[in-house]
């Protein structure tokens, strides 16, 4: 029972981070119908830049409380990632908007490789530890323990996601985004600047990605040039799980995937009689992805799509 509660808590932490990243995928997919393969790299840059800023401040002898340092780091990494997202769209996607679908996918993969290599150039190939500036005090819930930091991660994710949903529902930009996702050409005729909406989507998604990257780095106490790949893939899975293009779906899918994954990792040994261990944790995301796409290709909250013949 303790394991169960513990794994649920771990899953919630993981899942809310997935959800935050999944929003980036799902917004872009909803509006442009393409998978922004380079999104995972934006997440990685968010983590890396933040760590660099914090380290630089500390090296300069500036002595501030941990949370404040992280906040300053975020204030630099968020705009940096937003700029990165903006540039990615301009360079890799906009020129190919009418090209066959394979073309933007390849540029995106190419860009992922470039971004990883740039990260190696700047930060090297090794794991970079997150500076030990945040407390790892734990609290106990139902016999399971969770750090205060993890509680903050969950709460922050929920707040940000709620803010985004309100933004999309209530603001002018949000309306323009919804109109564009339904029908870009009609939205264009109605006076929506489709290019601006698309840029805004990339910028917002990348900002969320930067925050998520920092959360990942604080949660695992490290960052790495390759960290964006797996986490990006899982977040995409979460987006598909919830129904790609659907914001609420991305949130639900992210949290669900996080919980499935940590429950799976916690119980796989018992389930297989010790044959498979928790080192198989990563296959759950892919298994879930395949299952969802077989049984409900439109995702949990997505609308059923039918081919028009």
């Amino acid at each position: 029972m303790d394991i169960f509660v513990q794994q649920i808590l771990n899953g919630l932490v993981l899942g809310s981070i997935y959800a935050l990243i999944a929003l980036g995928y799902t917004m872009v997919y909803g509006i442009m119908g393409l998978i922004n393969f380079a999104h995972g790299e934006v997440v990685m840059f968010g983590a890396m830049v933040t760590i660099s800023v914090i380290s630089a401040l500390m090296n300069a002898g500036i002595n501030l409380p941990g949370p404040l340092l992280v906040l300053i780091g975020l204030m630099i990494s968020i705009p940096a990632c937003m700029l990165l997202g903006f540039v990615i769209e301009r360079v890799a996607y906009r020129p190919l908007r009418n090209a066959p679908r394979l073309a933007p996918l390849i540029t995106a993969i190419g860009l992922s490789i470039v971004l990883q290599q740039v990260a190696i150039l700047i930060w090297g190939r090794n794991y970079i530890p997150f500076p030990p500036i945040l407390s790892h005090d734990t609290i106990t819930i139902l016999g399971a323990s969770i750090t205060k930091l993890q509680v903050i991660i969950i709460v922050l994710c929920l707040v940000i996601m709620a803010g985004l949903l309100v933004m999309v529902e209530r603001t002018k930009l949000g309306r323009a985004m919804r109109a564009t996702s339904q029908n870009p050409s009609v939205a264009g005729l109605m006076g929506v600047s489709v290019n601006k909406v698309i840029s805004a989507t990339f910028v917002i998604g990348s900002g969320l990605g930067a925050i998520a990257g920092v959360m990942v780095a604080t949660n695992y106490d490290q960052a790495h040039y390759y960290m964006g790949f797996l986490i990006g893939l899982k977040a995409f899975t979460a987006a598909v799980l919830g129904g790609i293009g659907n914001l609420g779906g991305a949130v639900a899918g992210g949290i669900l995937l996080g919980i499935i994954e940590s429950l799976g990792a916690g119980y796989i040994g018992t389930l297989t009689g010790g044959f498979l261990g928790s080192n198989y944790q990563d296959i759950f995301a892919f298994m879930v992805l395949i299952m969802v796409l077989i049984f409900r290709p439109s995702g949990l909250l997505g609308e059923k799509m039918a081919d028009r013949a």
Binding site: A103, I106, T107, G110, L111, I113, V114, Q116, Q117, I120
Partner: peptide, 19 residues
Amino acid sequence: NARMLLFGLAMVVMMLVRP
């Protein structure tokens, strides 16, 4: 590092110029 960087760039440029 340089090799992979050029490889990634080549993929992007090739798709933009001659998809």
